[in-house]
């Protein structure tokens, strides 16, 4: 619906896509493109949906916590226990030693990222059209297609990596890692550059991988939506609409795998990075 509206609005496909990829910005925003112009702007849609999904996790958890039983578990408790044990297994496999923060962190990442990714599977025009009906001009429903959301998680993880590096190795040990790793004491400048890149690549790759995958996925959904939106005129619609539905279904099924995989990768890499941070100074 929105697609045809946009197409009829004269901007065509480019504007349709750009409209869908623009956040609902308040604060320091460009009045023409509606993009953030400076740092002090807020993407309300990203915040709204990520907080909504976070709240959903908490609400369901609180609801479940009241009916937890260590007897025969119900089907939902069973499901949650299975997810928990899966995460626990990942932590056990990839994290040496014991840190009570790692498992809840990994679980939070897995659930939250998966739910935020899942927003991608909701028909691309549904929520923006509803928002438009309420007078909201822009709505980007998938928080993980906003670099702010993915970078926020990866930077938090990065802060934890630095914290545990210093806590486990000591400030001197951490510094030594930069100086003498990976090529020994005769190539100190190279070591510093290499280790710096290696460490900085961790949060960046985490954030950009998730962002890139979901952004591209969203783009493909938009392109599939455009098949029906711009090409379906008159009798041709009979031909084009089934094609769109078929393509959409195919990409949906494939994307279901992608969103789970991306949530899993983010979680596992977080565990692995923190595990590396917990390794002693001599383990390198």
């Amino acid at each position: 619906m929105a697609a045809s509206e946009q197409a009829a609005g004269g901007g065509g496909t480019v504007e349709y896509i750009q409209h869908h990829l623009t956040n609902l910005c308040v604060g320091d925003c460009d009045p023409v493109t509606h993009k953030a112009a400076g740092f002090w702007a807020l993407h309300l849609d990203t915040l709204f949906f990520s907080l909504l999904l976070g709240g959903l996790i908490l609400g369901v958890s609180a609801w479940l916590a009241r009916r937890l039983t260590d007897g025969v578990p119900g089907p939902f408790q069973n499901f949650v226990e299975a997810i928990l044990e899966f995460v626990q297994q990942q932590v056990k496999d990839s994290f040496p030693g014991h840190n009570p923060l790692i498992a809840p962190l990994a679980l939070t990442i897995f659930l939250w990222v998966w739910l935020m990714n899942f927003m991608d599977l909701i028909p691309v025009d549904l929520l923006p059209a509803l928002a438009a009906a309420l007078g909201i001009p822009y709505l980007k429903v998938v928080p993980t297609t906003d670099l702010n959301a993915t970078l926020a998680m990866s930077l938090t993880v990065f802060a934890l990596i630095v914290y545990y590096n210093i806590k486990v190795k000591g400030a001197v040990g951490y510094l030594k890692m930069f100086l003498f790793h990976p090529f020994g004491k005769y190539l100190v400048p190279v070591n510093v550059v290499m280790t710096l890149i290696e460490e900085l690549a961790k949060p960046l790759s985490l954030a950009l991988r998730l962002f890139g995958n979901l952004f591209a996925g969203e783009l493909v959904f938009l392109l599939i939506a455009l098949i029906g939106g711009t090409l379906a005129v008159g009798a041709l619609a009979f031909l084009v609409l089934p094609l769109q539905a078929l393509l959409d279904l195919g990409w949906l099924i494939f994307h279901l795998l992608v969103i789970t995989l991306q949530a899993f990768i983010f979680m596992v890499l977080t565990i692995v990075y923190l595990g590396m941070a917990h390794a002693g100074p001599d383990d390198h």
Partner: peptide, 13 residues
């Protein structure tokens, strides 16, 4: 476009 959303997201996370 990195914005203050980042800070809010970190706090939420």
């Amino acid at each position: 476009n990195i914005t203050a959303t980042l800070l809010a997201q970190i706090a939420a996370f």
